[in-house]
Simulated scan of single mutants.
Amino acid sequence: MKKLVIILGLCTVTALTGCTKDMSNRDVYEESGNTINVNNKRHDLYNEGASRGMRNVSNNYGFVRHQKSPLMNDNTANDHYSALDREQAANIISKLSTDIPNVSDVSTLVTDQEVLIAYNTDSKDRNLTADQVKKTAMSVVPRYYHVYVTDNTVLRRDVENLANVDSTSRNARNLVNGLITQMKKSPQGQRINASEDENGRTADDNIGRDNR
């Protein structure tokens, strides 16, 4: 009888230990609130827009427009999130760019290899502002991306219209290239370095590639 009681007692302790360990893991990895849900956060980085009805990120460009808040010390635009899909990248770039002095309205389009940004500014140094907007975008996207900017607000509509173009369509690349040609008439900022031009293109990028 005593042996049976001892065995039952050990089983109970083991079961409680297992439950406690399991609950501990849930506290760290599964709860919401102030704890971090590791699995969900990892999923959000790659597919955050799936539950929001966003377009299929593999077949479409990402487009987001942000305007600077008219309220002083409004930091809602500083809620920057990390993401790897095109629409989320456009979201981050637009938000960050509205923090730049003299930049109040930013439309960003992210393709599979470029970032196109149209913004409104009253800056007296257009080239400096273009450089700041461009480098902001480059800090978000992978290094192989090329960034094109324009402060010509007439081109904003063209950038926005491309957001509705299926990136897999036959004419999509021609439309993007045509808009890039128009955007490059605006200041593009400084060269990235000795081997890369203002948009981050190298001599190798121009070999066997579409002329942009």
Rank of each mutant, 00 (worst) to 15 (best):
V149Q: 02
A203D: 12
N78C: 11
G189A: 04
A83F: 13
L162Q: 03
Q188C: 00
Y61E: 00
S32E: 05
T108G: 03
T150W: 05
V141D: 01
N37Y: 07
R209S: 13
L4A: 13
N199G: 06
D205H: 08
G49T: 07
V28D: 15
K95Q: 15
D210H: 13
K95S: 14
R42K: 11
L175M: 15
M138L: 03
Y145P: 03
M1W: 02
R65K: 14
L175Y: 11
S195A: 09
Q182C: 00
A90N: 01
N199E: 15
V28C: 04
A130I: 01
G189R: 04
V38L: 11
N39Q: 13
N164L: 12
N120H: 07
M138G: 00
R65A: 14
A90W: 06
T202Q: 02
N177M: 09
L175P: 01
V13K: 09
L175I: 05
C19S: 15
H146L: 05
R55F: 09
R86L: 03
I192Y: 12
S107H: 07
R26D: 14
V106F: 04
R212C: 07
I117T: 10
N211K: 14
E30R: 06
D105Y: 10
Q113V: 01
A194M: 12
A172D: 01
K2P: 04
R126A: 14
A130E: 00
Y61S: 08
S169W: 09
I7R: 10
H146W: 10
N73W: 10
D151R: 00
